[in-house]
């Protein structure tokens, strides 16, 4: 029986992973755009990205574009796999294959 991924299952982290998973592999999202797409606040988003990064599900790249700092978040292969498994488990629950 497949288990739900406790790290991904938190609602905002689920939205973050869904957004990153919708992009082609190795394509990331800038922090500000990710904030807009997930409807998160600055502090909230930062904390949850850190949790996902510690789990190895996302990679965080900080760079300067001109004089402005820019943070880009990308789903790792492990993160993509974990998200796909999490979605499959959700579908199994809906289909009644899991209690």
């Amino acid at each position: 029986m497949a288990e739900l991924d406790e790290i991904i299952h938190q609602p905002l982290r689920l939205r973050i992973m869904a957004a990153l998973h919708a992009l082609p592999a190795s394509t990331g999202l800038e922090f500000a755009r990710l904030k807009k797409l997930t409807g998160a606040t600055d502090g909230n988003l930062g904390a949850h990205i850190e949790t996902l990064a510690r789990a190895g599900y996302v990679a965080v790249d900080k760079a300067f574009v001109g004089k402005k700092p820019q943070t880009t978040v990308t789903a790792t292969a492990a993160g993509r796999g974990a998200f796909a498994r999490h979605v499959a488990t959700l579908q199994e629950i809906i289909a009644g294959k899991q209690p």
């Binding site: 609602p11 869904a18 919708a22 992009l23 797409l37 997930t38 629950i93 809906i94």
Partner: peptide, 18 residues
């Protein structure tokens, strides 16, 4: 589970639109 999947679909739609 259904609510979580709807949430995912909503975000995916927003990403594609963006």
């Amino acid at each position: 589970a259904s609510a979580a999947l709807n949430d995912i679909n909503d975000v995916v739609h927003r990403v594609r639109q963006s």
